[in-house]
Design a protein around this nucleic acid. Structure first.
Length: 224
DNA sequence: ATATCGATTGACT
DNA sequence: GTCAATCGATATA
């Protein structure tokens, strides 16, 4: 109850970009294990070419570290994961299952090979654009896609934000088109850690971080 | 060169 | 709960 009110309060007024400071390189220049929970409550913002702003508050992340068997970078640098070894604070996008993309933020220091997967955000701006892009996944011909279906899941988020490999390597620091904004200082919601989803290795690590009871988290969505 | 596997999703029993 | 879609990356020969 209390948590629900907290979410509601945070977005009861019209959201606009840059009310809260953008995250800078030092924020990302830490272990993915520290960055991942700290990203919860931050807001992912994209300004489209036509000026449209779409945004969502991060509610679910996963950490992938350099010494983690489940991390793409674990076996060294390859064309796919090259960006993970590059500049801290860049976006790492990869294509998977022959049809989906996932969006990550490169952390730690160059050459290390760490990233945080953004698995879900709660829409706070540009819902109409998101819904258009996600419309083909509509559950019923006449049913409007619920808000928690827009960005609840790493590939859904990429659809809603129109992320693909062309975004791979983009800097989130000092870039005018795509960035993350700090969590409001007073914002406080309990964080829960769980095993990461969809991996076959290192299942024992509880490196998935979520806002407990947020209905915008993946795998907790309800059918309309 | 060929086989298997995904940091997933949507449809379906 | 199960399963197909779909293709690049990775493993095996």
């Amino acid at each position: 109850m209390l948590r629900s009110m907290s979410f509601l309060h945070c977005h009861s007024t019209m959201w606009e970009p840059d009310i809260h400071p953008r995250l800078t390189r030092p924020f990302y220049a830490r272990s993915a294990l520290l960055v991942a929970p700290d990203l919860l409550g931050c807001t992912l913002v994209k300004r489209e070419a036509d000026g449209t702003v779409i945004a969502g508050m991060v509610v679910e992340t996963e950490a992938y570290t350099w010494d983690d068997p489940a991390c793409h970078a674990y076996r060294g640098e390859t064309p796919r994961c090259r960006v993970m070894f590059g500049e801290t604070g860049c976006a790492y996008l990869y294509f998977t299952y022959g049809m989906h993309h996932c969006f990550n933020v490169v952390t730690s220091e160059p050459g290390r090979g760490e990233a945080v997967l953004i698995r879900a955000v709660q829409p706070v701006a540009g819902e109409c654009v998101m819904r258009e892009r996600r419309a083909k996944a509509a559950i019923g011909a006449s049913t409007q896609l619920p808000a928690h279906y827009l960005c609840g899941g790493p590939a859904r988020l990429c659809q809603a934000f129109a992320f693909d490999l062309s975004t791979n390597g983009t800097s989130l620091v000092g870039d005018s088109r795509l960035w993350l904004e700090a969590r409001p200082p007073e914002f406080s919601v309990p964080i829960v850690s769980t095993p990461r989803i969809g991996i076959s290795r290192a299942k024992e690590n509880y490196w998935r971080f979520v806002f407990a009871d947020s209905r915008f988290v993946s795998r907790s969505v309800q059918k309309p």
